[in-house]
Amino acid sequence: MNVLILHGTETGNAEMLAEEMSGWFDARDGVGHASLADITPSDLDAGTAYLIVCSTYGDGELPGTAKTFHSLLDGSTDLSGVRFAIFGLGDSQYQDTFGLGSKLIEDAMITAGAQALVSRHVHDASGSDLAEDAARIWIETVKDRLHATS
């Protein structure tokens, strides 16, 4: 089982969390992390589970490093067999657009035929808990799914 943690970031919060997450896997999971800017949808394969950490920027937009990846997820992309899970970063102060960046990626992945391992979780920067704490809980659900299916 290989795990690749991908991040889409504007201010580095998602990148830091992705790095942190990669330390939470055993060696047997073959985990790595990379920027969404350094990968295209056609690179994704069925033998790897993709965990995507993605923020929202501006008025519900994708962060800079996720834009190209998202734009390449058009109608012609076939991601059948690809498994993924998304952890979003948002700010509930902007309630109309809360977590929209990660939702845009999730919707496009699902439309392309990829399968979500667990439901998307969005951490709230205006909340009282730390993103790492929420991510630790979330990632256990991801691991359960991975080890149950691999």
């Binding site: 201010t11 919060n13 830091m16 700010d91 102060q93 902007y94 920067a125 205006s126 993103a131």
Partner: peptide, 15 residues
């Protein structure tokens, strides 16, 4: 002061 979500980048830099 009322943009605590933006200030949360501090948590990243504290590390």
């Amino acid at each position: 002061a009322d943009h605590q979500g933006t200030k949360a980048t501090i948590r990243q830099l504290e590390r």
